[in-house]
Simulated assay, not measured.
Amino acid sequence: MVTSLAGCPPAAWALSDIPQIPGQQQPEEPDSSTAPEPTEDEKSDDDAADPGLTGIPDPDPLINKPGEDQTDADTAEPQKPPPEVIYDISKAPEPVRRMRELMIEAAASGDIERLRALMNPGPNQTQIQLGTDEDDPVAKLKSLSGDPDGVEILAILIDILSTGFVRVDAGTRDEAYVWPYFAEKPLSLLTPPEKVELLRIVTAGDFAEMEELGNYNFFRLGISPDGQWKFFAAGD
C-alpha cells in the first residue's frame, strides 16, 4: 500500500535552508579589515594576559659595566722588588766587614762568652729578639741552643754569616746589613742554587713550613754601617 507523505512532518531544515523572514536583514559578518586597531593600553593588557609572550629581559644586575668596579689587582699597591743580594763582602763598609770577621772568630772558638764584648754593652746593646725572659744577652743565646754551652748557636751564627747578605733601610737611622738574605727575599723567588744554600741552614721540613707561611723565620742578624751588632732575632 502506498503511504502518502503529505501528512508526515517535514525533515529538519539545514541552517542554510532556513528561509529569511521578509523585512529582516541577515546579520553581517565582521570585516576584519575594518576592525579598529587596539590602543597601546589594550596591547599592554593583552601581553600581560598572555603568559606565552615575553618581552626583552631586564639586564642582569650582576653584570658590571666597564669602569664601575676596580679589581683588587688594580687597587693593590705594587710590591717592592727584593733588595740586591750581595756576596762580595768588600762591598760592605769596612766597619761592617770587621764586625763580621770578629763574630766568626768568636763563634769558631767554641766559647760563647767571647761574643759578649761584641754585643755593645750599654744603651746600644745588641737586641736579642727571641722571646726569652733572660736579661743577660749571652744567657739568652745559650737558652736557644740545643746544648747547655751554646755551641749550636755558635755554629748557626757561622752558617748565617757565610751566606749572602742585603742592605736594608739605606740612608735611614735603621740602615743595616742583614744576614742571611733569605730574611728579606721572598722564598717564592729563590732560585734552585739559593734553595740549596738555604737548606744548609734549615732542614727540608723547616723549609716546607716556611713556604706555607710565605717567609723565612729562622735566625738572622744585622750590623749597622758603623760596625755595631744591632740585633739577633728569629721568627717572622
Rank of each mutant, 00 (worst) to 15 (best):
T75C: 07
R167V: 15
E194V: 00
P38R: 04
E68T: 05
V151M: 02
D69R: 11
E105T: 10
E211I: 00
G52L: 12
D174A: 13
T71Q: 05
E211V: 01
P19V: 04
D74Q: 15
T163Q: 07
E40W: 10
E184F: 06
E152D: 13
F165H: 05
V85Q: 08
E212C: 03
P82R: 06
A108D: 11
E134F: 09
D31C: 09
A208Y: 00
P192K: 01
I86S: 13
D58F: 05
N215R: 15
R173H: 12
Q125S: 12
I18A: 05
I201N: 02
D133L: 11
P123H: 04
Y87Q: 12
T75R: 02
F219L: 08
P192R: 02
P66A: 12
T163M: 02
Y87G: 14
P93W: 08
F207L: 07
P38N: 03
Q70P: 05
K195C: 03
K142Q: 13
F182K: 05
A35I: 07
K80R: 14
P82M: 06
G146D: 11
L115W: 06
P30H: 07
V166D: 02
I201A: 00
Q125C: 09
P57G: 03
L199H: 09
L199F: 07
E84M: 14
L5T: 14
N217W: 10
I156C: 09
Q228L: 12
R167W: 06
Y181S: 05
D135V: 06
F232Q: 03
L199E: 14
L157E: 00
S33V: 11
Q129K: 11
L141I: 08
W229T: 02
P10I: 05
S224Y: 07
M210C: 06
